[in-house]
C-alpha cells in the first residue's frame, strides 16, 4: 500500500518551500507554477493550506485517460507517462481537486508522483506541515486523542 501525504495547515508558515523543491525535482528549475503542490494563503484567517494529489483510490484522472498514460503503480501512486500522453487534458478536467495540471509553456501534463518515494515536499518542509504517513500504521492523531483521554482519566482518578 502507498504511503500517504498528509497536510497540517496549523503548522504551515506559507514559505512555499514545497513548491520550490517540487518544481526543481521534476523540472530542474525553481518555478512554483510547475509545482505539483500549491500553497494557498488565507490572509484574514491567517491560515495556509498546501494542496497536492492524494492518489485517490478511485482516480478519475486515470479512469478518463484515453491512452493509459495515467496509471496506478503497484505502490499505489498514480503516475503520468509523457510518452503515452496525447495532452488531451481530459485528466485536468476530471480531477475533482484540481491536482492534475497543464503547463502552457511546457505543453505538458504534470501531477504528483511522490518523487518515486522520496517525497521532496515533505522532506524539505521546515515545519512538518507536510508529512508522509503509512496508512497501515496507527495515525498520530489517534495517538494524540488517546494521550488526551489518558490525561483526563488520570486527573479524574487523582
Amino acid at each position: 500500500m502507498a504511503k500517504q501525504l498528509v497536510v497540517d495547515p496549523k503548522k504551515c508558515v506559507s514559505c512555499r518551500t514545497c513548491e520550490l523543491v517540487c518544481s526543481f525535482k521534476h523540472n530542474e528549475e525553481f518555478n512554483p507554477r510547475l509545482s505539483n503542490v500549491s500553497v494557498f494563503h488565507y490572509e484574514e484567517a491567517a491560515i495556509t493550506v498546501p494542496i497536492m494529489c492524494l492518489q485517490c483510490d478511485e482516480a478519475s484522472c486515470a479512469a478518463i485517460c484515453p491512452t493509459g498514460a495515467l496509471k496506478r503503480q503497484a505502490d499505489g501512486v498514480v503516475t503520468h507517462d509523457a510518452n503515452k500522453c496525447i495532452v488531451c487534458k481530459m485528466c485536468v478536467s476530471a480531477c475533482p481537486l484540481g491536482n492534475v495540471s497543464y503547463s502552457v509553456a511546457k505543453k505538458k501534463i504534470f501531477k504528483c508522483d511522490m518523487c518515486d518515494g522520496e517525497t521532496w515536499c515533505a522532506v524539505h518542509c521546515p515545519t512538518g506541515a507536510i508529512s508522509v504517513v503509512d496508512p497501515d500504521e496507527v495515525p498520530d492523531k489517534k495517538q494524540l486523542a488517546a494521550d488526551k483521554l489518558k490525561a483526563a482519566v488520570e486527573e479524574v482518578l487523582a
Binding site: 508558515v13 506559507s14 514559505c15 512555499r16 518551500t17 520550490l20 491567517a46 491560515i47 495556509t48 521546515p126 515545519t127
Partner: peptide, 17 residues
C-alpha cells in the same frame, strides 16, 4: 499573536500575524 509566518522560501518564519 495569532500565528507566525514566513517570507518566501524561509525556514525561519519570524513574521508575526
Amino acid at each position: 499573536l495569532i500565528k507566525n509566518q514566513g517570507c518566501f522560501g524561509c525556514t525561519i518564519a519570524c513574521g508575526r500575524v
